[in-house]
Every structure is written in C-alpha cells, then in structure tokens.
Design a protein around this nucleic acid. Structure first.
Lengths: 183, 183
DNA sequence: TCGCAATGGTAGCGACTCGATACAAATCAT
DNA sequence: ATGATTTGTATCGAGTCGCTACCATTGCGA
C-alpha cells in the first residue's frame, strides 16, 4: 500500500521545501532570490520564475511583489517586448543572499560521499526532468551545456547564443537559462 | 557557489511538497491523512504528527482541526494520560484516501528500476534520519523493524512490544511507530 | 506531598502561499 | 485587421506556518 521510497521522498521534500524562514523572508522568496541570482538575463522574468518554481503565475506575481516591497528585487521594462517584465536583484538583494545560512538541502547533501553524490544525482535529475516534461514545463539548464551555445564565437564577445543570436559573456555561460536544451 | 545536487533536490522537493490540491484538501492535510492511516495507535496523536511532518505544534493543531471539520478525522481522549489526544481516520477519511490520485512522488519513483530504487533509498534514508537527529526529532519506523519488537510472543497475541509491554496484532507490526528504534 | 518543571495540546495573530478566476495589454498569425 | 496567444496583474478565500501566550495534566525531586 504505502511505498517506502516515495514516503521517504515526501518527508524529505517537506523538510527541504519548508526550509527558509530567515531574515524576514519565506521559503518561496528565498528560492526566487536564489533563482534570480543564478539565471541569465533572458530568464529573469516572472514567467520563467513561474516555470522554475512550478507554481502559478498569480502566486509568483505576489512573491515578486513581496521581494520588491522589501527592496531586494527590481523590476524593469523590456524595450523589445513590452509585455515582459525584467527582474534583477538589487545590491540589497545580493547582500541578503550572501548572508543566508546553509540550507537544509545543502546540509543533507553535504553528508554524502563523492561516490554517493555521483550515484544519486543522475537519478534525481531524471526523475525531475521526466516529470517536468510530462507537465509540459521546460527543464532549464546551464547556458554552456546547451545545444545553442557557441563557444569562442570570436566576434567580439567570448561566446554566442545560436538560438537568440546574441553575444554571451563568460558569466552568462555559467548561468541558468530557460531556453536551454541539452546538447 | 550553487551546488548542483542540492539545487536539484530543492526543485524536486518543491514539486513534491506542493503536490496534493485535490478533493478540497491541501498538501499538508493529505500527508496527515496518509500518516494517520499508516501509524499504529500509539503514534496517532498531534504530537507524533508534529514530529512526522516536521512542523510546529500550532500548525499541526490547525491541520487536524481542518480535517476534523471536514469529517475525515476523529479525536478521542486517552484514559491513562489525559493530556493526550488520540486521532483516528473516520470511514469518510479512509474513503477519501482511497480515492486519491497517484502522488507526484509515486509517479517519480515509479520511473526507476529496482536497482535504482535500491541504490537511492538508503541514501535518502540516511539524509533524512541524520537531519532529524540533528533537530532532536525521532526518525519513526516500522514496528516490526524495531529492537523492542518481540515476534511470536506466544502469549495470546501474535507479537509484543517490549518497550510499552503491550500485545501487538499482525497489523500493528506493519504500522509506523513513533517509538521505533532500529534493530 | 508540595511545588515546579516538563509535556501535550490549543488559541490567536500576521505574513505569506497558492489555486482559481477574471482581466488588461502587447504581440503574433492569418 | 482581427482574433488567438502570450505575459503579467488584481482579487478572493482557504489554508500554511512560525510565533507567543496560555491551559491542563503529569512526573519528579526536595
């Protein structure tokens, strides 16, 4: 009747997802903050955040509003597509993030050996991506591991995005991108 | 800066923990319902539920109140210790549970092979128990896998609990117990 | 056996979550 | 042009969840 593994996963999930009541922020707000710090400029929009957090647009809109109220996130318009809202951390947001204590997820995984981490990571990755695919969500991923990533484009910028036809800095390459498709 | 594995774990955790908006219940309520269905009679109290869910007493008190309002859970007193509140599913609660669709956690783990499940389970179990120990919480566990479990006590009841000095039915042996200590 | 800490639980508050519905604006496809 | 799609916001209601108080009951030590 009850599946042992799925029970284990569910309890662990509660602990991790409920983690993050520090410095006046809530778990979802910390996760949004962390995402915005790690995502490239194309992926810092309420829509991308919605897909990343797996929530609805309305919820994310409120989370973003709360972060803006606290002065941790800034909103700006996109010249090309005026429906879009560009999000960015403020210096205060970056500072808050730097002060954050270790997360439960970090503490939990820190107790694993290198071999164990290597064993568990691909399994978890598969579970996540398969589930996201089933729900029609994008999996996200690192810019540099994308099939549209052109290393050393040698036309001024270090690299280049073949999909959006835009130059990429070295920093961009290490960021999370919503358009990413595994190479 | 960002740890890949812990990121993966956090996203997966959000999806799993946020899963369960069916039939007028919320995720936490479903988990409480599932726990109460799987726990033995010593472990069906608000306090045990608090430890299992990893929340605070107040939160759990409200979740239980919501389930009682919906007629899915029943409260009763304990004769021996009148501070305690015993919880039990009502027939309606059991029926609601039977109607529940597959959880995200079940769907995710269903995609794994037997070997993969065998590989991931002990790791997850260790991550969870180590973390619970750190917070001073009990790990819980199956009655039959407890060091206080006396199989085939042969004094009327099938088995026996050495800690509480009580007879155990075959059904009890397969239930979750808050007092459990690994054999 | 008295007093007092520990235990188990509830009450109420405030900020937030989160799905749902409705809506507005910009953009895209035909 | 014009209707569908995309992107985001507004509002609502139920619930989550940590927090501080608070109340019984129980257990323990002097």
């Amino acid at each position: 009747m009850t599946d042992r593994l799925s029970d284990l996963l569910t309890r662990t999930a509660r602990l991790i997802a409920g983690d993050g009541y520090w410095a006046g922020l809530k778990p979802a707000q910390w996760q949004a903050l962390r995402y915005l710090a790690a995502a490239n400029r194309f992926s810092r929009t309420p829509g991308a955040l919605t897909a990343w957090l797996g929530q609805t647009k309305g919820t994310v809109s409120q989370t973003v509003a709360a972060l803006e109220r606290k002065g941790l996130v800034e909103r700006s318009e996109d010249r090309d597509d005026r429906r879009l809202v560009r999000l960015a951390l403020t210096p205060a947001g970056r500072a808050r993030l730097a002060e954050a204590p270790e997360t439960v997820a970090d503490a939990m995984t820190a107790g694993l050996t290198g071999d164990e981490r290597a064993a568990i990571e691909p399994l978890l990755a598969r579970m996540l991506t398969e589930h996201l695919a089933q729900r029609g969500y994008r999996p996200f991923g690192l810019c540099a591991e994308c099939r549209h990533f052109i290393r050393d484009a040698a036309d001024g910028a270090p690299h280049r995005c073949g999909l959006l036809a835009l130059p990429l800095s070295a920093e961009d390459a290490g960021a999370i991108c919503i358009e990413q498709e595994a190479a």
